[in-house]
């Protein structure tokens, strides 16, 4: 189940893609990100806590989601990656592409501090 949580008072949207981000749901995930309101400086956090499997389609969707957020002057972060997914992302040098944090709270605090 893909779940979306809009926290309007914080200007923050959190997406939880469920246990997989693969060919099956990568397209849906990206369309969902691109359909988010393009408000000035929105913050999008993808909570990866439940994700056990990411394939090339999933990685592509995350990269394109980050690019989309760049085009709307937004902020994009990944949080709560499982160790095995974190290791895979590191091997793919994706730590150069994504900002990754341990939790939603840490990501939000850091983004807000930088935005000031």
């Amino acid at each position: 189940m893909i779940s979306i949580r809009e926290l309007a008072d914080k200007g923050l949207t959190v997406i939880d893609p469920g246990p997989r981000l693969t060919l099956e749901n990568a397209h849906e995930f990206l369309e969902l990100v691109q359909a988010l309101p393009a408000a000035i400086g929105p913050i999008l956090i993808v909570n990866m806590r439940d994700i056990k499997t990411v394939d090339s389609s999933g990685v592509g969707a995350l990269v394109n989601a980050r690019k989309h957020m760049d085009t709307v002057n937004g902020f994009f972060a990944l949080v709560a990656l499982r160790p095995e997914i974190g290791r895979m992302f590191k091997l793919m040098n994706l730590h150069n592409v994504f900002e990754m944090y341990e939790s939603e709270e840490l990501a939000y605090k850091d983004i807000i501090a930088r935005r000031r």
Binding site: M1, I2, S3, R5, L7
Partner: peptide, 19 residues
């Protein structure tokens, strides 16, 4: 079991529990 969308103008524990 496909999609779940929540929107909080102010934090809501009841909605968080249901979520």
């Amino acid at each position: 079991t496909d999609l779940l969308y929540t929107k909080h103008l102010h934090p809501s524990e009841a909605v968080e529990r249901l979520e």
